[in-house]
């Protein structure tokens, strides 16, 4: 059954998809081990989303321990912050567009230690690819 992006149910599906993915486990074994590998995604309005929404993803050693929507970004401690519009995140969540390419183009603004991103690029790609492994439904469609 499709889950609505963004929602807490969707976050739980993403967590499950990450934790059942062997490539993520292998490529991410060093992720977040000696640094803050948690992510905060700021999804800005557009494409059916009417208010800024924050998704929090806790990731360490190739596993996800928490994934949920949050109301206030100051609630969490994230080492990586990514912002982009809902309209632009949709094709990434659908698996139609590469997240890394979006970052390279500057479509998504990413703040955090880029040396860690480069060192763990295959993990980042695998986590992004996991988005297309479960069925999502979208606002405005």
């Amino acid at each position: 059954m499709a889950v609505l992006y963004p929602s807490n149910e969707w976050c739980q599906e993403w967590k499950k998809a990450i934790n059942s993915n062997e490539v993520i486990e292998e490529t991410g074994k060093n992720w977040g081990v000696d640094f803050n590998g948690n992510w905060l995604f700021e999804v800005t309005p557009g494409g059916g989303l009417d208010k800024t929404t924050y998704l929090y993803l806790e990731a360490k050693a190739g596993k996800c321990s928490d994934s949920r929507l949050i109301d206030d970004p100051s609630e969490v401690d994230a080492g990586f912050f990514c912002t982009g519009s809902y309209e632009l995140f949709k094709p990434v969540v659908k698996g139609e567009q590469d997240f890394i390419e979006g970052v390279v183009r500057g479509v998504f603004k990413l703040k955090g230690d880029m040396t860690k991103i480069m060192l763990n690029a295959r993990f980042i790609r695998a986590v992004a690819d996991s988005l297309g492994t479960f069925e999502s439904e979208f606002l405005g469609e």
Binding site: G102, V103, V104, R105, G106, V107, F108, K109, L110, D113, M114, T115, I117, M118
Partner: peptide, 16 residues
């Protein structure tokens, strides 16, 4: 102008 994602990445790596 403001750097694209590639430029920001390269800048941060060089600075480090």
């Amino acid at each position: 102008e403001e750097l694209n994602g590639l430029g920001m990445t390269l800048k941060q790596i060089i600075e480090t």
